[in-house]
């Protein structure tokens, strides 16, 4: 198209670059608290997924370089890397990366065709296949209560603290009152998300709907069973909430098209996340919430065919 009008034209690669840029602060904080294992996770997954990408493009007799350079796979790899506990065995990382790329994206026809968020597909495959390593250090009782996978990474330290607390006769739940590294990391994701909003790369509908509905659902749950629930104050800044709201749920490929549908989609993710966090046997709520709502996207798209703008 004619570029005589100086439009801020973006390219797919450019969008992905910006999202990765927004991931940097949170990632740096994670590395600071949890060590270089995070970097190892991310880089191994990136390498493997790029290799898968090249392999598939070769099979399809299409040029590999543009597909890799558009950055979509690298971004998905980065997101998956952030969700895994550091020190995961190498072969599990490889399986996670391969399922993300092949099962999550290419079986559906590649970029733009996948109904499920690839990073979450990779995560779900790993969680179901290797529950032990993926939820290492979590005791059976703790398993059902743990807020999410990320707390699981910190369990080594938290468990120690927990024992101290128990010796002092305090309740199990109080340890979660100050998972301050997590709060800090979530704030970093939040800032990344605000950057994306400001750059117009994502729109507010999904994150806001998701955070609101999670807060409401959690508030209800807390009101009903205050003994068994994290206090709402820490909920939005715990675990993968902000990363999920701004980086995972907003994946444009797997989100619905129209804005009303996006509000519902975000709200659904928030609600299911809280439901899973509160009741399920799995520690991570967001991955399954995103995957479940991905299933509903075609239906949502059908319902809101012509209602693009609010």
């Amino acid at each position: 198209m004619n570029n005589a009008f100086s439009l801020p034209t973006r390219s797919t690669g450019n969008i992905m670059m910006n999202v990765m840029l927004a991931l940097i602060p949170g990632t740096v904080l994670m590395v600071y608290w949890f060590g270089a294992g995070i970097i190892v996770n991310i880089s191994v997954i990136m390498l493997v997924s790029v290799a898968c990408e090249a392999f598939v493009q070769m099979l399809r007799q299409r040029p590999a370089t543009p597909a890799i350079l558009d950055g979509s796979m690298l971004l998905a790899a980065w997101l998956l890397g952030l969700c895994l506990p550091p020190g995961l065995p190498l072969f599990e990382l490889i399986i996670g990366a391969a399922s993300m790329s092949l099962l999550g994206k290419h079986v559906f026809g590649g970029l733009g065709q996948n109904p499920f968020n690839p990073a979450m597909v990779g995560y779900a495959v790993l969680l179901i296949s290797f529950p032990k390593t993926m939820t290492a250090w979590i005791s059976p009782t703790e398993f059902s209560q743990a807020a999410n996978a990320w707390d699981s990474i910190t369990q080594a330290t938290v468990l120690d603290r927990l024992r101290d607390l128990e010796r002092q006769g305090l309740s199990v739940y109080e340890h979660t009152l100050s998972p301050w590294p997590w709060n800090a990391i979530n704030v970093a994701w939040l800032f990344g998300g605000l950057y994306l909003l400001a750059r117009g790369i994502i729109r507010w509908h999904i994150p806001i709907a998701m955070l609101l509905s999670a807060a409401v659902a959690h508030g209800l749950h807390y009101w009903a069973f205050p003994q068994h629930t994290l206090p709402p104050s820490s909920m939005l800044l715990s675990g993968a909430m902000m990363l999920g709201a701004f980086f995972i749920a907003t994946d444009p490929v797997t989100a619905p098209s129209s804005l009303k549908a996006r509000l519902l989609y975000g709200a659904g993710i928030g609600f299911i996340t809280v439901a899973l966090r509160s009741f399920s046997n799995y520690p991570e709520g967001i991955a399954f919430a995103v995957l479940l709502m991905n299933c509903a996207v075609p239906l949502l798209d059908r319902c809101f065919v012509l209602e693009t703008k609010p």
Binding site: R10, P66, A67, G112, V253
Partner: peptide, 25 residues
């Protein structure tokens, strides 16, 4: 007319829907 840049797959970013003056997708 200038030649268009090489295209790639739709990533459903909905930029197009945002600018459509008649509210299409």
């Amino acid at each position: 007319m200038p030649i268009k840049k090489p295209q790639s797959a739709c990533i459903r970013c909905t930029d197009c829907a945002t600018v459509c003056p008649v509210n299409l997708l």
